[in-house]
Design a protein around this nucleic acid. Structure first.
Lengths: 215, 215
DNA sequence: CCTACCGATCGGTAGG
DNA sequence: CCTACCGATCGGTAGG
């Protein structure tokens, strides 16, 4: 599956021509800006509470110009989630690469939790609340697409959870634990603001304390 | 603070007249039906994705007739959350009353978790997802109103969490644990369906296993 | 509660 | 990318 942006580019340059012109690079940058401001607005006001005019204005464009970059409002929502998940996957892979081969289950879970919380307070933090709130608004096809990214992201937690279950530190079943843990962590986007009372490291330790009694 | 419905009734009969006429009872029932179908639609399609015409049609009314019962679309959203929280509070009080005076922290938390999950799979289960998704759409005044109900509901968890923290079964701080736990439990509304794989009692035990290592 | 209706806003398009 | 625009939908109201 390709993003709507890739679809547009593919249409313009014909299938299979790899090099990008300077125009295509500019277009790509401008589109990235649109996705970013759309993510902010969707988080603040919701998808239906944000008009395409709002997004265009925030990007300094005329109302109709959005549809030069995106075929529909829904495709912007899709792009917000798709781009966000791609960045999250990259960040999570880096966090796991930073571990030694013999890292314990506790160390692995700590790295995953910390990275996930980091994503939600970082500068690109809007897409997870948007996914939480607007998931049902995706088309069937879009939901399968982003769902695949999400499944791959979450699957990387299973080895750590299974290891912790085997050593007895995680009492719940790994599958149910994963569902409950993502609910708990994703909801922190609503109440946690870095620096106010609790640091990100402290929140990470509190979460580990709750889930596996580690502190 | 009074609901918009009470405000309407108060306006009609003048302040301080207690007895309700048969007309007022019918009006009250009809309004309750509207809140119920609105809750279902808001959960399925979101607040902005549901038109007042949708709600009226689902209740067998003409499009404009909604505004005989509610002064605005927002006031229907407020009523969904207000009525839902009132029922949740009643249900939770009953669950706690069912405990003996010497019930342990584990027993108290189990009763609270089970009751909360029960609310989310029961026939009046729509309001919690609606609260999760549409909280920001309330007016300042409405948010304070429902926020007070929510705070009172959640405050009843603190004695159990504090007791468990003192005995060492809950390693996280009671305040942070409460925030993480509600995130985890409320999110189950998205993936848990009774009977498919996991019963409500099994889910309750899995949650307790995750939070306090009890199983 | 119904009928009839209004003003505003919205997603999207044609043509350049 | 902009200009100019359309058709549809929406929340809400007047008057009964």
């Amino acid at each position: 599956m390709q993003t709507s942006h890739e679809a547009v580019i593919a249409k313009k340059r014909g299938r299979g021509r790899p090099p990008k012109s300077a125009d295509e690079r500019n277009e790509s940058m401008r589109r990235g800006e649109l996705v970013k401001v759309a993510a902010q607005l969707f988080r603040q006001r919701g998808f239906h509470g944000t008009s395409t005019r709002d997004i265009a204005a925030a990007a300094g464009m005329q109302p109709g110009s959005l549809f030069y970059f995106f075929e529909s409002k829904e495709s912007i929502l899709h792009a917000v989630m798709r781009d966000g998940m791609a960045q999250a996957a990259t960040s999570q892979a880096a966090a796991l690469d930073g571990l030694t081969a013999r890292a314990s289950g506790v160390q692995r879970l700590r790295a995953l939790v910390r990275n996930h919380l980091q994503i939600m307070v970082g500068p690109e933090s809007d897409f997870i609340p948007v996914m939480l709130y607007e998931w049902r608004l995706l088309s069937e096809e879009q939901r399968v697409d982003v769902g695949t990214q999400k499944d791959e992201y979450e699957a990387q937690w299973m080895p750590a959870l299974q290891a912790l279950h085997h050593t007895g530190k995680l009492k719940a079943s790994p599958e149910i634990a994963r569902l409950l843990i993502f609910g708990a962590l994703n909801w922190t986007a609503q109440w946690f603001t870095e620096g106010r009372g609790l640091t990100l490291d402290e929140l990470t330790e509190q979460a580990l304390a709750l889930f596996i009694g580690e502190r």
